[in-house]
């Protein structure tokens, strides 16, 4: 059994984007803050901190999850993937990222990391979704500048290919 006191700081080891890393956290530290402040992986953005906006979505063992609703201690020994995992060598965009660029699916980019991670999980499960299915997954994200049409188009482009 793992047992930690309120103010106890422990070293939490995770596999982040394929690399074993570790940093200190106390039990109440959210995964979103652990990624950004303890591990320096600032690609994951933090919006509402109660699971609505979707900006902080990451993959835990391949499954799209709100990092603001997950504690750092819960991912001990597990595999976490963030938006930093997507681009290839020399920053070459992956097909989903390229489709976002091609279709004006982002403006300010604040919500984009979370949306990319959600669709990374979803397209792995369902590579050829309908538009309704795409919109259903997108429901879990808030974007305040593009109006979503470009995002739907971008995912459709990848889904076709």
């Amino acid at each position: 059994m793992r047992s930690l006191k309120k103010d106890e700081r422990v070293r939490i080891g995770v596999t982040l984007n394929g690399r074993k890393v570790a940093a200190e956290a106390e039990p109440r530290m959210l995964l979103s803050d652990f990624l950004r402040h303890a591990l320096g992986a600032t690609g994951t953005h933090v919006g509402c901190e109660h699971g609505i906006c979707g900006a902080c979505t990451v993959l835990i063992d391949g499954v799209a999850t709100r990092s603001c609703l997950t504690l750092a201690v819960q991912v001990e020994g597990r595999e976490v993937k963030t938006v930093e995992s997507l681009a290839g060598a020399n920053g070459a965009l992956n097909p989903l990222q390229q489709a976002f660029r091609d279709n004006h699916a982002l403006q300010c980019g604040f919500c984009t990391p979370g949306i990319l991670m959600s669709f990374t999980d979803y397209l792995a499960r369902n590579p050829h979704p309908s538009e309704a299915e795409i919109r259903d997954v997108l429901n879990g994200h808030l974007c305040r500048c593009t109006g979503y049409a470009g995002i739907v188009k971008a995912v459709k482009q990848v889904a076709k290919g």
Binding site: M1, R2, S3, L4, K5, K6, D7, E26, P27, R28, L30, D33, E49, L71, V73, Q74
Partner: peptide, 13 residues
């Protein structure tokens, strides 16, 4: 916002 401090217990059974 962030939660107030709490003990964390992860039982195996």
């Amino acid at each position: 916002m962030k939660p107030r401090p709490f003990d964390y217990l992860r039982p195996d059974t």
